[in-house]
Design a protein around this nucleic acid. Sequence first.
DNA 1: CGCGAGGATATTTTT
DNA 2: TATCCTCGCG
Length: 788
Amino acid sequence: MSIYDTLNREQYKACMRTEGPVLILAGAGSGKTRVITHRIAYLMEECDVNPWNILAITFTNKAAGEMRERVDRLIGFGSESVWISTFHSMCVRILRRHSDLIGYDHNFTIYDTDDQKTLIRQICARMGIDTKQLRERTIMSAISAAKDKLQTAINYKDTHKIDFEQQQIGDVYEEYERQLRKNNAFDFDDLLMKTVELFNAREEVLANYQERFRYIMVDEYQDTNEAQFQLVRMLAAKHRNLCVVGDDDQSIYKFRGADIRNILDFEKVYPDAMVVKLEQNYRSTQTILDAANHVIRNNARRKDKKLWTDAGSGAKIHFRSFNTGIEEASFIAEDVKKRIHENPSLHFRDFAVLYRTNAQSRLLEDRFVQESIPYNIVGGHNFYDRMEVKDILSYLRTIDNGRDDINTQRILNVPKRGIGKTTSDRVMAYAQAMGISFMEALERLDDIPDITRAKTKLQAFTDLIHRLRDEAKTSSVGDLINAIVEETEYEQYLKDYDEENSEDRMDNVGELISKAAAYEQDAAEDAEGDGPSLSGFLEEVALVADIDQLGDDDDRVLLMTLHSAKGLEFPFVYLAGMDENIFPSYMSINSDDEDGIEEERRLAYVGITRAKKDLTLTHAASRMMRGEVQFYGVSRFVLEIPEDLLDETPRAGRRVFGEEKSPDDDADMPWSDGYREHRTPFAGRGTERAKASAKKDTRLKAVYVKPHTSEGRKPFIAKMGSLDSLQKGLPAGVKPDYDIGDRVSHVKYGEGTVLSLEKGPKDYKVKVDFDEAGQKVMYAAFAKLSKV
DNA sequence: CGCGAGGATATTTTT
DNA sequence: TATCCTCGCG
């Protein structure tokens, strides 16, 4: 009995064919990770392949980590020498070694979207381009799209000769490239493009990696772009042991340059490729698979496949329609509770709520807080996007790479040093005139014209950076951050800047220090790496995805976009916002690009197939969108599911804004009772409403569930603000332990007397007469008042 | 040069 | 609805 006996026939076939090109068309849940891990194990164990000669590319760092773990579990040794990483991490690793060959220092900085935007804005200002007419965003995505296709600025201008706007973009692109080079920085797309460039420019470097990576495996191949395709093609050119795994039905990153043809045409590029189809699904019930199959069948351009399972049909798919997004959110929260109540063996982590846009998370989150259900939100605001974290990172980048003008400028006046824009611009102008970096200009203060009053301040800043650089030579990254905080009196700055949240913000800085410490630990242990370094830490920070930070030890309901959910699975899945114009999004509906809807449909397919046992689709007839009520019909994807798979029949109820009568009088508003009587198509059928109200009567008593937090490692994936009420304060809506007339104390306002306490729609509102600060009204859960 | 107020404006998905 | 940006004042 060997570990390979557990594979099914097709999986086994894919696993054993180690030589030559292999295309594995792996439907959702068909065990493709199993195949890759077993294949790696097989190569090492049975074919005597040196782990060093194996490269496996995954979509996220999290997937890479899991894959390594699984290989380890299979054979128990050697997996640390296999290169398992994302495209971006792999490229950074290569570039760190050879960037000098294409004109960059080894300690290059990786620009995030904000850095990019700042740079583009500067360039536009210099070139006299009005960013109101031509938005930075537009320029950025045009440049990004070009880079995904390996198109240089010159190339771009050549192919877009006719269009004036595109010529402008081309000019900005050209200058942007020059600036990146000057700043010794790469943007995300550069990591791929410049690696290809490197390989093209230096045959011997490519040959070196070709020789090294004798066996190459690429996961999620359907979401590779041109640059990634070229990269893989080049690397595999010598040994041709290339195994790609993917599912054309799950290609959902076209907006990021993914080209579905990479997988559809694989056999054209490699005519001798062996093709294996994995159609047996080990994840979901037949009902769920049938629904997925029926939806995806509506796409024209795809390789035909049909998922099946021998797991049995399972429960029907639930469909629920609501009047408003609020009701939808309430239902989901209550339903999770109900199911856990009915079946105590279930955990919160068995549930996931998926939606099309990040904005939809808000209502759900509110509701989950109210119901005291522990949850995590993936995406939205990244930890590394927080102001205080960015400030520190900007310092680190400035210390690490003095040529990075963008980050130097960013912190020049953070904390406030009384150095304004005028001064900053003058330094910049001088730097440009002399062809030196911003930092170098600061080091020659005496030569800069018109610098008089600000001179001492600038000198102080320069000295500060120099001191920190010295510190960096000997200190760990964590200590360096501490030094930055100390030297800049950052804590005081935070207090002045935002008294209310300064503590939380300081906590985040602390969290960053822990991250740095963890990084240094890992890097020191990684035999294949170059050891810990500031550049290394900054690089890791730049390349983490939201999903990467997700620990699997937390027992929480997960809330995330459908995109983030790719590759994951949960026993119970809710697809919220199955509304026309939300999902599929109005962008894809109104676009003339036919494939837009097809991509959305693939996204629906991804969503449905995340569910193992139980799937619930919800729809809301009306929603608040940017402060306005919008009306939506049921998503076409729901209607594409055969009725007999659903426990409730959806009504199309499609309706275009402005048509029919507009709901401008209260009786017609979706939340009024009158509305329901008039609006049967939207309210769903009578039985459902009866059920809904019955549910209300038997509503579970709210149980406050203490969210699980592991010591020293706070889950910063969730938005801090909302978690606070769970972690530090009271759960919302629970009566506080003080009453009218009691003396209470508040962190900021000091002591006072409670004047009134009344139950609001969400939470108790408490009015306090503070001795010092006067009268304030606040929500009990957030006020964190304590009785004295 | 800093700060606040107010208006404009945006909203798909992300390595 | 919430953020971002600009403008004007101290």
